[in-house]
Amino acid sequence: MKKIITIAAVLALAPTFASAESFQEAFESNRAMYGKNHTFEWNGKNFSTNHEEEVEAAVAATKENALDLIAKAKAKNKEAAKLGFEWKLTGGILKDAQKAADAGEYRKALDLAAQAKYHSRMGIQQHAYAQSNWHLSVPQ
């Protein structure tokens, strides 16, 4: 949880660093090259290649944790839907997560909820990106 907070803080400050490589770029290239559970350095600090949702899912597989992450994922997906950027499969993944939790498969439920939450966050990010870049493919 600590880690997520630092990431969020760094992201918020990112523009002032005016770094050659943005945090996003550094994260993505390290993730692509080394996969999960790798540590990389960016602007003199260490970061994990795990997505914030993977960090959230890496908790004890208990009913409470599973239901908690499902609730967070649902809220995030609602946010994406409100912006009109909900992805096609997310609702189904959330249902599967709930089913897994009901069946006592808490590890599976956590992983599915993490995936749904990731989809939702990406949809929200897409919306933000679209606000300033949608015009790029308009013929002039």
Binding site: G84, Q126, A130, W134, H135, S137, V138
Partner: peptide
């Protein structure tokens, strides 16, 4: 409407224009 047409969206990150213009 114009913005909707040109904004990328979805898991495939595609806009209407990606398919119907470019």
């Amino acid at each position: 409407g114009k913005k909707f047409f040109y904004a990328k969206r979805g898991q495939l990150n595609l806009s209407c224009a990606n398919c119907h213009v470019q």
